[in-house]
Design a protein around this nucleic acid. Sequence first.
DNA 1: AGGAATTTGTGCGTATGTATC
DNA 2: AGATACATACGCACAAATTCC
Lengths: 235, 235
Amino acid sequence: MSTQPNTTHKYMLVAKMLIKNIQSGQLVDGERLPPERVMATEMEISVTTLRKALRLLEDDGMLIRRQGSGNYVNARGDPQNRYALFRIEKLSGPGHPKSQLLDVERLRKSDHQLPNFGTSDHAFRIRRLRSLDDMVCVLEEIWLDEDSATNITADTVTESLYQFYRESLGIWIRRVEDRISVSPLPDWCPAELACEPGQIMGFVERFAWGNGQEPIEFSRNWFDPETSRYVARLS
Amino acid sequence: MSTQPNTTHKYMLVAKMLIKNIQSGQLVDGERLPPERVMATEMEISVTTLRKALRLLEDDGMLIRRQGSGNYVNARGDPQNRYALFRIEKLSGPGHPKSQLLDVERLRKSDHQLPNFGTSDHAFRIRRLRSLDDMVCVLEEIWLDEDSATNITADTVTESLYQFYRESLGIWIRRVEDRISVSPLPDWCPAELACEPGQIMGFVERFAWGNGQEPIEFSRNWFDPETSRYVARLS
DNA sequence: AGGAATTTGTGCGTATGTATC
DNA sequence: AGATACATACGCACAAATTCC
């Protein structure tokens, strides 16, 4: 299979370019973009296409659009808050997020107990520890279907995974389903988390879809609901 | 303030009409809709407008669109699964959902400890018990800003709240933010829930946005994470 | 197996409505 | 009140995926 991601679509390219401009600081927080017609003319695209791209950014929380006013950069949607769609907060409020990569491996799905997702029989497993204000608070295990990504290594994965998907793999996560309950911490949990394996934790299972019909990603998160909470932003 | 909801927009009317047809059984599960161009001609609207309406249904999970194939009714997205965006599942899988209305009251926000939402100083409080396969499993408290709804009573509220918003209030929930942690069960919990007040439960706080800039709804859910899990579908 | 027909997706240009300043 | 700027709506052309003969 291995259908190559459609980086060919113009609105995707435009959206990625805009994001790049925001991230590189060319567009600062709160700044108003030029009018859509002006931007469209400058970029030599139609207003419709530009608007489609702007919609993507809006869904991602990086842009706030106001009729009659303008399109405003919401940098909080990206740098501070690298996990736009869902994130962990301390109960007292948001904190500065960081993530520490544990390992990246290419594995055969059937060798692990996994639900059905994707089309390949292999997947990349990414394990991370996430922290807020230097307090380690989430253990994360992500499975990305191989058909959506070739040659993922520890070097190539960046801090914001969905940004990595967009920029390196050409994948825009369009739909997600989270199942939240409780689950014992697995035994591969590193000591930094300051919880013991077997301890009951908040638990999130996630399926994520790109453009196709079936999920390309499956992931599991463990977090301590006594000190932090899970935030899902649906849009 | 009290800007009346824009039920005047053509794509909204079209979407509501389609939903009505699906819910009334005129369109059955799995059925393929006529081609977009045909439908558009019959309804005397442009394909663009129809497509915008179809997209809303797709986001709501009631429609599955396949390029080169057609638009298919996904009745699972509504009747069985009345709470499309987020729902409670038993750990063993989905069950048949029902809800029992406890009370509806119009209250002054400042008399209760509530976060900021909406523009009015009053809100309607809706309390419900939700069950799966006749097992009561969720206690629900919803606050809907008065500026978005006038004259809500126990008689007018229907089983699917967001359907009620759409059909009676002309509000399409476009964005939602959920905060999930744990919390003690409040003391107004009825005995049917079979948990004692003070018992630690799974806890979801939710803000919901319509078209405007600030949330029109705030709600709290308590659920037992030992027997059920919370599902959030982001799209 | 292969090619034509069907059907949705992308992209363009334009006109009008509506909220904001 | 007028200007500005995004939202809605229309019609068309071509691309891509699917279906069917």
